[in-house]
């Protein structure tokens, strides 16, 4: 198939940036979206132009590196996939595809489609851990039984890949699905109880400091999340936050 691509080009963080049109031809429906981008870049290199910079790594939907806002949706039109798992069979011959970076005040553009997601790192550093050293003398893994239900639910929350699609999809650029998922994973497990109050307070404080917006329950994040992280995690985070502040 032959396609027209409208791609955001921006030389660096200070550059204003603009949409630029490109044509690609003979694209196979079996290609992944990023393979289509490879074809474009090879074409640009061969014609002496600069290739489009975009983040990507594992190309199997688990590392969370790839981003891209495709035709107005984070990770494009398919459901339950990252951009690297999106295939060209989702598009038709002659289509025009708009490709932009994830946009949020807390995710400044570095170059073209590459954004800086260090805000997520700082939120994790504020409390996304259990304070335990490596010693080799930790108690036996079976010493505290954990119900299968709680373990499975914690796993569902922990499945977040930290890509930022939730932020990019939210009209308020809220990071509450991301933060809620981490808070929930530990809140659901006995190991996480000791520091639960401090954790939720510190992570939420950092989230606010980074300039992410608030949640107004639109639910776009849940729909666009490639890993199906549930809105329940935001509710759980709110309960944890309330509990932590009431107890003091």
């Amino acid at each position: 198939m032959n396609l027209t691509l409208k791609i955001w080009r921006q030389k660096g963080p200070q550059d204003k940036g603009q949409m630029v049109d490109y044509k690609v031809t003979d694209i196979s429906e079996h290609m992944s979206f990023l393979e289509m981008m490879d074809v474009l870049n090879e074409q640009l290199i061969n014609s002496g132009d600069e290739p489009v910079a975009f983040d990507h790594d594992c190309r199997e939907g688990i590392c969370g590196m790839c981003s891209m806002y495709i035709n107005g949706e984070a990770h494009g039109p398919d459901r339950g996939v990252t951009t690297c798992q999106l295939h060209m069979r989702m598009f038709k011959d002659g289509d025009t595809i708009t490709i932009e970076p994830f946009r949020a005040a807390a995710f400044p553009v570095i170059k073209d489609l590459v954004v800086d997601r260090m805000a997520f790192e700082r939120i994790q550093q504020a409390g996304g851990y259990i304070s335990i050293n490596t010693s080799g003398n930790t108690q036996d893994g079976n010493a505290i039984p954990i119900s299968k239900h709680a373990a499975d639910e914690a796993m569902d929350a922990a499945t977040c890949i930290g890509c930022g699609a939730c932020v990019a999809s939210c009209k308020n650029s809220s990071a509450m699905l991301f933060v809620g998922a981490k808070v929930s994973q530990y809140a659901l497990l006995p190991q996480g109880q000791v520091e639960a109050a401090d954790r939720v307070k510190n992570m939420v404080a950092q989230m606010d400091l980074e300039g992410f917006g608030n949640c107004t329950n639109t639910g776009a994040c849940e729909i666009e999340c490639p890993k199906g992280i549930s809105l329940e995690n935001i509710a759980r985070m709110n309960r944890e936050f309330l509990k932590a502040n009431v107890k003091g």
Binding site: I130, T138, K148
Partner: peptide, 25 residues
């Protein structure tokens, strides 16, 4: 020899390993 310690360490960190209905790993 150290393999068993790894599981204990990861459980303590909050890694959500699969559990059976009795709550054990």
């Amino acid at each position: 020899e150290v393999s068993a310690n790894i599981i204990d360490q990861c459980v303590a960190q909050g890694v959500p390993f699969a559990r059976d209905y009795g709550g054990l790993l």
